[in-house]
């Protein structure tokens, strides 16, 4: 499939993550192919794709857990291909990684769990207690400080894992499917927590195949399918680009006689830039959806055309496009 991204010389922008033609193959299987992306500091980057699209593989490469087969990536300005101990240590100090499955240790309290990771990040012993208290407060687990981890609910475990990810104050959080298996309340809590972290200046890459999860929080989005990054950038930019190609307009029309429906359909289809028309309800046919190719000026022309053709219109509204529609349209190749 042809990729959507176009490349142009970059300016001097400083990116938290920059990947340049990153690829990973397992034998003959190409898990990730030529992924090129840039993520600005403070962004919440939603990494969207179906299961097996290459999200986890890309994140594991960025987390220095997998070696790329080809290409290069920099996290906080440090190459993931430079495996010298000093570089790896600096790189890992910048990254907080939360895998899709939260592994926990038995017979360990929340405090001990965080203490272990604080020590594993060489945080000064005298600072650990205060840091752990702050983190548990941030993730709302202060009351569970001395509780055994195996007794926590799934949502609490997830929040504890997030606290663990934050223990060394990383600049970048790589969160692989953090909301999977959570109940609606826990999802909302997690979303609020991530927004709070973004306000604290963290750059977050969050992967999911549940788009509604990401809709409200992501400032940036990357859509990946079969290892290929189909689109990447700010949500608003992608929406803008997408809207240049395809807009959905909802029409509300005064009820008309049944024999005139086909005439109306013909008029609607002949409108400038109209690609498809479909009624949204049965009799009486009042609501219609029109797919239009073009920008705002073309929408204006279309409205004028309908008025000129005496279409009994009393509603004309462009449908806001959400991540779900972006994903569907991008993966269908509408905008390629």
């Amino acid at each position: 499939m042809e990729t959507l991204e176009e490349t142009s010389p970059s300016q001097t922008a400083d990116y938290t993550v920059k990947a340049d033609h990153l690829s990973k193959t397992f034998g003959s299987f190409e898990a990730v192919r030529d992924v090129t992306l840039e993520i600005e500091p403070g962004a919440i980057y939603g990494f969207i794709g179906p299961n097996g699209a290459g999200k986890t593989t890309t994140m594991r490469m960025l987390a220095t857990l997998l070696e790329p087969s080809d290409g290069e990536a920099w996290v906080c300005g440090l190459s993931i291909n430079d495996h010298h101990q000093e570089n790896l240590a600096a790189l890992r100090a910048c990254i907080g990684y939360m895998p899709d499955f939260i592994g926990i240790y038995d017979k360990m309290t929340c405090r001990e769990y965080l203490e272990f990771f604080a020590a594993a990040y060489f945080i000064e012993p005298k600072r650990r207690a205060g840091l752990i208290n702050d983190l548990l407060e941030l993730v709302d687990l202060s009351a569970k400080k001395e509780s055994y981890i195996e007794g926590l609910s799934r949502g609490m475990t997830q929040r504890l894992a997030l606290a663990r990810t934050l223990i060394h104050d990383p600049k970048l959080l790589l969160l692989d499917e953090p909301a999977s298996g959570l109940d609606p309340r826990a999802r909302v809590e997690l979303r609020e927590l991530l927004k709070e972290l973004s306000r604290m200046g963290k750059t977050i890459i969050i992967s999911s195949h549940i788009l509604t999860e990401l809709t409200e929080m992501c400032s940036h989005v990357g859509i990946i399918e079969r290892g290929t990054l189909l689109a990447s950038g700010k949500v608003s930019d992608i929406l803008g680009k997408l809207n240049q190609h395809m807009r959905i307009v909802k029409l509300r029309i005064r009820p008309i006689k049944a024999e005139k429906v086909e005439v109306l359909r013909g008029i609607l289809l002949n409108g400038p830039g109209v690609k498809a028309v479909r009624p949204l309800d049965s009799q009486p046919l009042t609501d219609w959806e029109v797919q239009v190719e073009g920008n705002e000026a073309e929408l204006n022309q279309l409205l004028r055309y309908f008025v000129e053709k005496n279409v009994p219109l009393f509603g004309f509204a462009e449908q806001p496009t959400n991540l779900e529609e972006i994903f569907l349209q991008v993966t269908k190749g509408y905008v390629s």
Binding site: P9, D20, S79, H83, K241
Partner: peptide, 26 residues
Amino acid sequence: AQRMAKTSKPAKTTTSTEAKTTEPLG
């Protein structure tokens, strides 16, 4: 990969000279 690292360029240099930016949906 260490061999690759020797030939790779640092990020700052790349961003200013050769890096490519993604123009989504272009």
